[in-house]
Design a protein around this nucleic acid. Structure first.
Length: 298
DNA sequence: ACTATGCCCTTAA
DNA sequence: TTAAGGGCATAGT
């Protein structure tokens, strides 16, 4: 069974602490990825990471709404294979929500527009961006936007140059743009993006897609994959009318500037394996597991 | 000359 | 039987 009995009458949960919670989640995912041959039990994971087992469970539950076991099951290759074959969401529990209609209620609703080829060719000439940093369920995030909507999301990791690295990753895409910092604006936008309770069809998130024609077509196709579902690079290629261009699609997916909102984490290899992610495979796994939790709570 | 692919083929447990 | 790894066709930047 996928859902474990979840504690009844549990003591009050600590207040949400995304940075600390994600740090532990990330450590667990990394540990599992390395030690999966040994099939470590929950107790063994807790011991290896020197965290009390109860705290491990509580953190996962607070962060994703799932037990660690359910979370980890949701991101195995077997599970991915099955959802690919049947077009199912990542978690059995989500099935009763249905494959159409109601399940869309739990999507992050997005309205997008593409920037004119002129602005694109000018490498951002004439565009002014605001940006800022904020906590997110997947670590410290950089949000970047124009007056038309969100233009980029990046993640700040020690390993990749921290805040500077994240900002550089965005600015180098539009070297001729103007950039001004606004952390408050970023926090407000991050709240709308990363809190499922704030996802409302009547209040869609506005985003701008700045890229080549092919890239924009691929990114638009990504937007039609519902929360908790997944597709493959080759299926995506057929979808944009270039059935043999799986690899080029992979490259285009990899250049998506608005990670998470444009759900490039919902694309896996044909065999169900997580093949790559600009912001690290661990984060991709975390996003897929977290989304399984969003559906399970629906 | 780069890819966040996919397929087919070995080889080693 | 499976996992891992090399070779190669492929298409867009």
């Amino acid at each position: 069974m996928l859902h474990e009995p979840i504690r009844d009458g549990a003591p009050a949960l600590r207040p949400l602490d995304p940075p600390a919670d994600y740090a532990l989640v990330r450590a667990v995912i990394e540990f599992i990825s390395q030690e999966y041959r040994a099939q470590p039990s929950l107790a063994e994971i807790a011991r290896a990471l020197r965290v009390p087992e109860a705290e491990l469970c509580e953190t996962f539950r607070r962060w994703s709404g799932l037990t660690p076991k359910a979370f980890l099951q949701a991101v195995t290759i077997d599970h991915a294979r099955r959802l690919l074959a049947e077009g199912l969401p990542l978690l059995d529990a989500a099935m009763e929500v249905g494959l159409s209609g109601p399940s869309r209620l739990h999507d992050l609703f997005v309205k997008h527009e593409a920037v004119s080829p002129g602005s694109w060719k000018a490498r951002g000439q004439g565009l002014s961006f605001a940006y800022g940093f904020s906590a997110s369920p997947f670590g410290r995030a950089l949000v970047l936007w124009t007056d038309k909507g969100i233009a980029g999301i990046a993640f700040s990791d020690e390993a990749h140059g921290g805040d500077e690295g994240a900002l550089e990753d965005m600015t180098r895409r539009w070297p001729a743009g103007r950039f001004a910092r606004d952390d408050e604006g970023a926090a407000a936008r991050a709240a709308a993006i990363f809190d499922p309770a704030a996802w409302r069809p009547e209040r869609p998130l506005r985003i701008v897609l700045i890229g080549t024609d092919f890239e924009v077509r691929v990114w638009e196709a990504l937007l039609s994959i519902p929360t908790g579902h997944a597709t493959t690079y080759s299926a995506l290629a057929s979808r944009v009318g270039a059935p043999k261009a799986a690899r080029a699609v992979g490259a285009a997916v990899g250049r998506n500037p608005i990670s998470f909102v444009v759900p490039c984490h919902r694309v896996v290899g044909k065999g169900g394996a997580l093949t790559g992610y600009h912001w690290g495979l661990t984060r991709k796994r975390a996003m897929l597991g977290w989304e399984a939790g969003v559906l399970a709570r629906a």
